[in-house]
Amino acid sequence: MQADLLPFIDWKHHPRQVIAPRERIITAGDPTEMLFLLESGVALASDAAGRGHKHPTDLAKKASGSDITYVAGALLSLLELLSLDTYRHDVLAYEECRIIGINRHEIKAMWNRDNRLAWPLSCSIAAAITQRRQTRFLM
């Protein structure tokens, strides 16, 4: 469960949002200001969705290939949040999802309390991975 990786966040005190099936949780182009924890439900991130090639309804039926499936406890598009200014891919609710949003600056501030290297190191590694994935798409 990825949420366990951020034990200093008390998720209980953050508001929940319910997203209906086929609705977008994250839209490509949204600023990466918020980190979303999927508390319940299933969500999909699709490369095709990010490029606008597929209608959301079609995407919800198709969970294969380059799609990423998120289940309860997952942090949505964590690599993109750490490495980009805007999300690159849509994330859609495959079934009804309950999500919790938390501001990235809040996380960063909590992170920096113990060690100033941890946050930029995480961002740097995430950026390297994201760049490699992007290159793979271009090849």
Partner: peptide, 9 residues
């Protein structure tokens, strides 16, 4: 928790 997070990334 921080090193676990980085290793996870």
């Amino acid at each position: 928790n921080q090193s676990d997070f980085i290793r996870h990334i």
